[in-house]
Write a protein that binds this DNA or RNA. Structure first.
Length: 613
RNA sequence: GCACCCGUAGCUCAGUGGAUAGAGCGUUCGCCUCCGGAGCGAAAGGUCACAGGUUCGAGUCCUGUCGGGUGCGCCA
């Protein structure tokens, strides 16, 4: 019996390398082992012979035939043969199925800490669907990287000294708003005031006074005098974030970064560099500027202001300070416990009265930020080069995602042309409730299931497309429960669970297995299951959760296909519970493995796996 | 103007240089004689934007063109 799942492709590769040795090659080519396309003979194959034709002055089929003669393969390879220029392997069906039932090998732990920042939404209004993509992408990636063995720290940056926060807080004062009783969520209440303030500002007579008020509020924010007001908004936003299933290790407040002198220290650290200067004349007279031309080619004006001539620092300067802290160039922020998140993990936050804690100091960073900020992030990266830390500059990665359109149009938070995350989730859950009422009126816990499925549908819609593609948020698409959706995968999971429950009731759940009875249906499903570890590696390496999402769709489809398979005369071909003894055992084990993989995969995307739908 | 990203079926999208380019939605036709029809099977639908190039082999890599998006402030 096997214990851990064997890496079939690696074993085949090793055998090919060994066989190539006999051919007397100067250097080994890259060896690719892939699954054979549907309809072709064999299970796995390699095109290696084709690339060797010139060097060996032989036709690929001949080379492949030579390899067949010389290759030594494990006993589980039933047949080795040449197909076109390909060298194909057909495996023992029993082995393939058995292999798929074994637990996957744990991923080796990678050295060094990775700091991933996501969300980083201004604490001034409710979250909208544009933020949704960031949170889902960031949180899913975090789950995948952790599972793939990275030592990961997840951070959310709170821009509490920004203009947006100031405008919102001033709006409350301006309109004389007291408490939001009876209004609902606090962040919505503040957000509405913010939008109204911008409407007022269209009037030039009012604009001047409002501007003064905003500036005053901005100063109070910088002094830390409105921390509790900001915190109220932030906690309200966190409710939505938790509902989505996203969590962090630490919140980092901008005001704390500034107050602890990290910004000043970062600027001081840069001062010695030949790439920074304080011009006495010209456009930048009196400002502290950085020349990025050596690191970002092709710019018309490579100079970037870090400290304005009036002594205030730019947003970029703050980002540089943060990045220097993230990568351990600077130290000294204090943390304290902030919250216990729904999963039970503690959330910490920077705080003036906190204590030093081992956050930051990572050897690699990932910033999940909208693609429009690409230039700004390149500047931050360049600042590491300016600091002489090419090693670190290479290890800061911008996960850039394209913007989300709303029914084909650009959103605008300022104008209030948005759909809030709360609104979308509520609508999704409500629609699922209706589906459950129709399809499963006796559902034991419809509200709980509706929450899992509705939120899952929204999350999956945000994850399934590659990050660099613009997505158009359309209600009917994001809230669809059929086809390429989260609920499709959840349904596959629930159906598998249903079979296992029935097997339990009938007392056959741990029946003996007879792998000699394996049919092509089990093999097809097993081969999909076997891809899981490789897919995860791929998703982690490319920092691309959509790779896992696409795989889960394929796996669920393979299972649905198995579930519904029919014989040529239209009878069920793959019953589990009524299968002959021995084969029933094999199928039950396969269903268990499938369920486990679906659950694991859903969890890594941040979706729940409901037992009953 | 310069830079970055995108262009694959009517629509929305997959597709580590490798075998006949695949899904979902929509359209048409079938399937509860089994364990959940939020499902399955089938049909129709393609100049992989265009033109060159590299390669044994290009949707995938390179160059150019066209189309779309975004960025390039002493704003945040």
């Amino acid at each position: 019996m096997l214990e851990l799942r064997p890496d079939i492709k690696s074993h085949l590769k090793e055998a090919i390398v060994q066989a190539l040795g006999v051919l007397g090659l100067q250097e080994l080519p890259e060896i690719i082992v892939q699954e054979t396309p549907a309809g072709k003979e064999g299970d796995y194959g390699t095109p290696v012979a084709m690339g060797l034709a010139r060097a060996l002055r032989k036709a690929p089929p001949q080379i492949a035939a030579d390899l067949v003669q010389n290759i030594q393969l494990p006993a589980w390879v039933r047949r080795t043969f040449v197909a076109g220029g390909y060298l194909n392997f057909e495996l023992e069906p029993a082995f393939l199925v058995q292999a798929a039932l074994e637990p996957i090998q744990p991923f080796p732990q990678t050295a060094g800490k990775v700091l991933l920042e996501h969300t980083s939404v201004n604490p001034n209004k409710e979250l909208h669907v544009g933020h949704l993509r960031n949170i889902c992408l960031g949180d899913s990636l975090a789950r995948i990287l952790r599972f793939a063995g990275r030592n990961l720290e997840v951070m959310n940056y709170i821009d509490d000294t920004g203009r947006q926060a100031a405008e919102s807080l001033y709006a409350l004062e301006y309109f004389g708003l007291g408490s939001p009783e009876g209004y609902g969520k606090y962040d919505h209440w503040v957000g509405d005031a913010y939008v109204r303030l911008h409407q007022e500002m269209e009037d030039p007579d009012k604009k001047v006074a409002i501007e003064q008020g905003v500036q005053k509020t901005l100063h109070r924010l910088e002094e830390g005098g409105l921390r509790l007001e900001v915190d109220k908004i932030l906690r309200s936003q966190l409710q939505t974030i938790y509902r989505l299933g996203a969590e962090y290790n630490a919140l980092v407040w901008e005001s704390d970064i500034v107050r602890e002198g990290l910004l000043a220290k970062a600027m001081k650290a840069l001062e010695g560099s030949p790439y920074v200067s304080r011009p006495r004349e010209g456009k930048y007279a009196g400002a502290f500027v950085m020349d990025t031309s050596a690191f970002i080619p092709g710019l018309e004006d490579p100079y970037l202001v870090l400290i304005r001539s009036n002594g205030t620092s730019t947003y970029t300067a703050k980002d540089i300070g943060l990045q220097f802290w993230k990568m351990g160039i600077l130290e000294g922020i204090k943390f304290q416990e902030y919250d216990t998140q729904p999963s039970g993990t503690r959330l910490y936050s920077t705080h003036p009265e906190g204590l030093p804690m081992p956050f930051g100091g990572a050897s690699e960073t990932i910033n999940v930020v909208d693609a429009r900020q690409s230039h700004a992030l390149r500047v931050v990266q360049a600042s590491l080069e300016v600091e002489g830390r090419h090693d670190l500059a290479e290890r800061c990665f911008h996960l850039a995602y394209e913007t989300v359109l709303l029914e084909g149009k650009q959103m605008s938070g300022r104008k209030g042309i948005v759909v809030s995350v709360d609104e979308v989730l509520d609508e999704a859950v409500q629609r699922v409730r209706a589906v459950i009422a129709e399809k499963n009126p006796d559902h034991p816990s419809p509200q709980e299931a509706a929450e899992q499925i509705g939120v899952g549908a929204v999350r999956f819609a945000m994850i399934k497309t590659e990050a660099r593609k613009q997505i158009d948020f359309r209600y009917d698409q994001a809230l669809s429960f059929e086809g390429d959706t989260g609920p499709y995968i959840q349904y596959a999971y629930a159906r598998a669970g249903s079979i296992l429950r029935k097997a339990e009731e009938q007392g056959v759940s741990s029946e003996r297995t007879d792998f000699s009875l394996t049919t092509s249906h089990e093999v097809a499903l097993a081969k999909h299951l076997l891809r899981f570890p490789e897919v995860l590696q791929d998703a982690a390496r490319n920092k691309a959760p959509h790779i896992l999402a696409q795989y889960l769709l394929e796996l669920a489809a393979a299972w649905s296909s198995f579930y519904n398979a029919k014989t040529p005369d239209g009878r069920p071909a793959t019953p589990v519970l009524t299968a002959p003894e021995g084969l029933r055992g094999v199928r039950l084990e396969l269903v268990k493995a499938l369920r486990q993989t679906l659950k694991q995969g859903l969890e890594l995307l941040g979706l729940q796996a409901p037992e009953v739908m």
